[in-house]
Design a protein around this nucleic acid. Structure first.
Lengths: 344, 344
DNA sequence: CATTGGCGCTCTGTTGCAGAGAGTGCTGAG
DNA sequence: CTCAGCACTCTCTGCAACAGAGCGCCAATG
């Protein structure tokens, strides 16, 4: 027993690799005979059994019961994706296809379509964390709808547009509205609402009474607009997971999973962690500490605007997924999203 | 055998009613003994068996196999909801609860929250068809974002706000933009874009060249905004259907159902039909002609704006659902939605 | 000493079978 | 018309037997 240390010899690694690949392809436990056929090595099943016993001792594979083949453990998957996996880059064609399906009209649509594209192309669930907004604005405008109803139009620093209808106590004249908008735009564009509030507070006495009312109403609406469109997670194609028999065998587990989807908060936490890392990250099984994700893996990649990470895209699927395909897809999607968001 | 005609005598009706009620409550086929216990009539199981045989002959109930109890057929359900069902109106409390959960901020939110409320309160899937927009506008505004980028703000006749970013070939001055917006607002407010297009075409020569370019860009954007926000169906809580064992017993059926959800077009067709009727409508099983809805029922009610029907709300659940609860819920939701939409 | 063929062991999945339980249809009596 | 009783049918469960798959171990081999 020389190889009980962490260093797997080359043969053991190759065997583990083919075992994982075959299991991902078939979904069936892999036996020594099958492995001897597909490994490429010219070894008899008996020899392979010895190696498999070692791999099992190291906690990389396990057998569901004495007389079935072996399947990878979470640790086995981890070793596989970390050191054995050979990812093939995407075709130019596939990249174009991805790019073509992103809807660039607005940030919201962009994010939603990214999630949808991921789910469609991988046939798993696509998730995207929407960018956290900096609470500033680029431009503000009032539009008179009715006697005492105003439409507040807010162009955020990211170039996104928000609308809010506000009720006022007093009826403002068009010129008053223009004056107020001008004042906000000229003096405070780029500031957060908190900053504006502080500064206005100190200048309050100089403002006409009616104007200050309008200002505070606008600030409140702005705050609300920003907080409402805070970080959130968009999930597409959750239904796809129904088709995965790895999961659907266990109805309760599946329902737990969907429950997790509805409670976005916990999911957000997981995805936030991933946004601290640089490239593609992979969470296998319950690594994230979320039990409902027991037999799932999460593949994520952060995306950025102007070089700053603002969110995360990813895919949730069964642990037994074709990583070599999913990883580049998530990677490219994150990059496409980054460039689409930076352009605007 | 005098009662083989369509006229069910009172006793048979009562028995059918309790049978359906018990089946809806238990989900188990109902046998003659159970029926004799719960019907309230003082009959022995043997007599009841005679009546049940009649009901089976008429196609109102059926047995899954020789020695199980009976379950209602689709025709049985239909008869039940048409003539036997006693619906109890909602509590004041429940109505308030419903009302409280509707988010009235915008039409979109209102519709989305209606769907969500329905799904949460019934624990089935909630569906709402968004109102088809009349293609007119109430107010239009241009906002300068950058050199040649304008933000077009469109307040629709329904009071909804749409934004569109348009690229122009020429850089317009603020005063030109205001002039263009004023012209559109003063002359064409309330018209459809098609009308405006026709009228502008004839007046084209009188317009300055650069202005006409801006106008046509605005019209195109307006058209797009309107067509994009055409009729659509919003589905909430599709996941709820996972919990229904009536359906989850059959994974394939469940998947078909979710496929139907993704292809909104077909669903839209069904819900459109329902909008022609006046009050609550119930589609049982495949009555709608959609096979994936085999073991489902759809309960719908149209909602209106200013007395004109503009959309449909409803619930999709298992055929074995508590109609006496679901029907008033859908009914009230439609009414609340109507009044919320009419107020604005 | 790594490799290999062989043998016994264990576990699963399927099949056949018997018995219990549930519910029906029918019949004959009140 | 109602009802008790009886035979019949169908499902469900547990049990036993059996084939298949795969492993571990051991002894033989180059």
């Amino acid at each position: 027993m020389a190889n009980e240390t962490h260093a797997l010899n080359e043969r053991a690694q190759l065997l583990l690799k083919t075992l994982v690949e075959r299991y991902i392809a078939d979904g069936q436990p892999v036996g020594s005979r099958a492995l001897s056929k597909f490994s490429g090595l010219d070894l008899s099943p008996a020899s392979i059994r010895n190696v498999m016993a070692d791999l099992e001792d190291m906690g990389l594979i396990a057998s569901p019961h004495t007389s079935a083949g072996r399947i990878p453990t979470p640790r086995g998957y981890r070793f596989f994706v970390d050191t054995l996996l050979t990812i093939k880059p995407l075709d130019r064609v596939e990249i174009n296809q991805l790019e073509g399906q992103l809807q660039v009209e607005s940030t919201q649509k962009l994010v939603a379509s990214a999630s949808q594209v991921l789910s469609e192309i991988t046939r798993f669930a696509g998730v995207v964390v929407t960018p956290r907004r900096s609470a500033g604005f680029r431009h503000i405008e009032f539009l008179r709808l009715a006697e005492k109803r105003l439409l507040l139009i807010l162009v955020t620093a990211e170039g996104d547009v928000q609308n809010r209808i506000i009720q006022t106590e007093k009826a403002y004249t068009p010129s008053e509205l223009i004056e107020a908008a001008n004042m906000l735009n000229q003096n405070y564009a780029g500031c957060t609402f908190e900053e504006i509030r502080r500064r206005i507070q100190s200048e309050l006495k100089q403002l006409r009474e009616d104007m200050s009312q309008l200002m505070t109403a606008a600030l409140a609406a702005g705050d609300q607009a920003v907080s409402e469109s805070a970080e959130d997670v968009v999930i597409s194609g959750g239904m796809n997971l129904l088709g995965i028999n790895d999961l659907s065998s266990n109805m309760t587990k599946l329902r737990d999973l969907f429950n997790l989807f509805e409670h976005r908060a916990t999911l957000l936490q997981l995805l936030d962690v991933s946004s601290r890392a640089q490239g593609v990250q992979i969470f296998i099984g319950g690594e994230a500490g979320l039990t409902p994700l027991d037999e799932c893996s999460v593949v994520t990649a952060p995306y950025e605007v102007d070089g700053k990470i603002v969110g995360t895209v990813g895919v949730i699927g069964p642990t037994r997924m074709a990583y070599e395909r999913v990883i580049p897809i998530v990677d490219i999607t994150a990059k496409l999203l980054s460039s689409a968001l930076t352009q605007r």
